[in-house]
Design a binder for these strands. Sequence first.
RNA 1: GGCGGCAUAGCCAAGUGGUAAGGCGACGGUCUGCAAAACCGUUAUUCACCGGUUCGAAUCCGGUUGCCGCCUCCA
Length: 499
Amino acid sequence: MGISVYNTLNARKEEFKEIHPGEVRMYVCGPTVYDDSHIGHGRAAVMFDVIYRYFQFRGYRVTYVRNYTDVDDKIINRANKDGIPASEIAERYINSYEQDMESLRIRKPSHTPRVSDHIPEIISTIQALIDKGFAYPSAGDVFFSVRKFHAYGRLSKRALDDLESGARVGINEAKEDPLDFALWKAAKPNEPKWESPWGPGRPGWHIECSAMSTKYLGNPFDIHGGGKDLIFPHHENEIAQSEAASGKKMVNYWLHNGFVQVNQEKMSKSLGNILLIRDLLKRYHPEVVRYFYSSAHWRSPIDFAEDNLLQAEETLWRFYQAFLRIEKLGSAEANPAEQNPLSEKLAKLESEFMEAMDDDFNTARVIALFNDFLRLLNQHLDLPKFGKDPAGASLLRKSFQELVRLGEIIGLFQEKPARYTELAKTKAIVIIGLQPEEIEAKIRERAQARLEKKFSVADSIRAELADRGILLEDTKEGTTWNLELKKVHQKQQASGGGK
RNA sequence: GGCGGCAUAGCCAAGUGGUAAGGCGACGGUCUGCAAAACCGUUAUUCACCGGUUCGAAUCCGGUUGCCGCCUCCA
């Protein structure tokens, strides 16, 4: 049984077969660096990161290329607006993106090429297209002649004539056909430019990905990914360019992730509801964000509504609370006891995980699987003697370790449980405006009241804390405090913290 | 207008021919002075609607309605 993936090209799930044995070569369209990245960029980055990690987990050697589009109209516009060179804008937002990627714990791709470093490759690709009759220069521009490429429209399932009739673009005099797209654009004043056989100018949008993917991965290569919006025209044009230039198939599997919404609405500049990765991460731990991304299938839309994020946070919290309990069991090694439901499930966990992931990277199924396993862990933690027995404790620890090992592929459970909890508490304390000492004092005060059976006093102390998002938990070892995450977020929003 | 996609419980969300995963919430129970946490149980005879294929459909086909995306260098 191998991995199956949904391939946009054939509009169905297909068994994955690599071109070079034991090796996967994948290319994902990275950002155009003219602004800070939003949660939509984050989704693409996280989901392809999961795919990258999973192929590695399955033993493949993976070459993963994710580019930066650092030459582009939007960058130039931004540069002119801010009165600084386009290269500086690009540099600034590449840094910003890389910070975001690090925050989201994205594994670094094998290569992160930039357009500006690949002008010679781009020029020679364009030249090849001209030589083969697929492209033509016109007044300093070079265009790709769409009608010369017979398979045009296959990926996006469009007929050329439909495109023509639906075209809203103004006719460009320099084009032979309105559908033709630019490979090279003649330089205008105040634009970055490079010398070329057709005069000074810069590459069009699509050609960079053809040139760079071919350079790093060859043709054909295994997987090309990106957001759904890139299917047309970007990826359609890439196919035309690469296949026309090389005479070979470009890519076997095209993967396109679904869009994010914010409160059921499309995220867009005009609606003013762009949610930046960095702003989201002020309020939620990166693993919460990754958990949330993973809770839906990567091809489905996903709605970044506050309630949904809170739900993800609470569920992840449950995992870490169980991990804390396990860590407190001590670390004496012992051979596992006889078979029990936990050991049986533990033995199967990896294969069930792989079954879910093999099925088009179904992370939502993995989340369900982990939750099932969590319940089993808690069941055993609740058994009076199980954890005290070295064999039982050992099994619980092994179970925890297995979750950490498999969770790494999704990017979950990688924090030390104590640290994860402390981090949340430290953050919460600031928001709530209560020092731990104050909470401890209240707890002592309440303990005294309870001792004296003044339960109404004790209860009012508890209620007072609960109102601020602090939950008290009376255990045999004494009273501890925990967070009511939802309330903490409400306070945070009320105070306007973290936006 | 053209093309593509989606509609599963109060909410989020898996499930692509064999009789509805998981999470949140709610309710009942165990525990507790009472709670909280954790655990147990209940919570969709039914998968937008209509028709068809089939022994059998949430899953396939046709139609209807609603929503979304792309066709505008937006992941």
